[in-house]
Amino acid sequence: MSLSPGDITAIWLTLKLSALVTCLLLIISTPIAWWLARTQSWLKAPINAIVAMPLVLPPTVLGFYLLIFLGPDGTLGSLLNELGMSPLPFSFKGLVVASMIYSLPFVVQPIQNSFAAMGNRPLEVAATLRASPWNRFVYVALPLAKPGYLSAAILGFAHTVGEFGVVLMIGGNIQGETRVLSVQIYDHVEALEYGQAHFLSLIMVAFAFCVLALLYALQKRGKNTVIESAF
């Protein structure tokens, strides 16, 4: 059994999507996680809840609302339209936006936890040594939060690879654009091509195992445990 060109396109697309989403999420999650870890504001609980919501909501709910909000009649869709941007549903860009929402808690929470775990002490010590707030963040906080970033990247990437429901609802199944691996497998199963479905599914199973094994291996090595900072 070998991979068809369609399968290879789907695998490549999935990797591209996951890598891009992970990079973008690491960037935007940093200020969110930093703020959530240190704030005393009453807004902390509601913002935390919003970040965690994709964990609880079924992908169908996310997909359904994205389809409506990003559509020509939707708030966001009409806004983008007026700005002269192409509509997001049925496009790779749309999948990136949807995946970022979908995987947000998997990236924010590990980073937030490691920021919270380090406490104020290292930053205060750095401050007595006249480190500026920016230097304190870059040279003290970020290195200490490394295990958190590692697990955030791994989980964010893996979770995006495993995304299915949202993509199915706003993707439109376009080869090379929105037909990711999970949708390709679904299509094989629906078309009764069980051999190919098995083959691709096995790749996914192996991938999931490797990712989690890596995560636990890192946990064993590092003192600041990766898994603990993940959850």
């Binding site: 389809l67 559509g71 009649d73 199915l168 609802m169 439109g172 199944n173 376009i174 679904y186 629906e190």
Partner: peptide, 20 residues
Amino acid sequence: KLVQGENIGQTYQFVYTKNA
């Protein structure tokens, strides 16, 4: 220009929400 629904119900949804 074609976007595909997995079944006819999803295809209806794409047109209903005016995304297609």
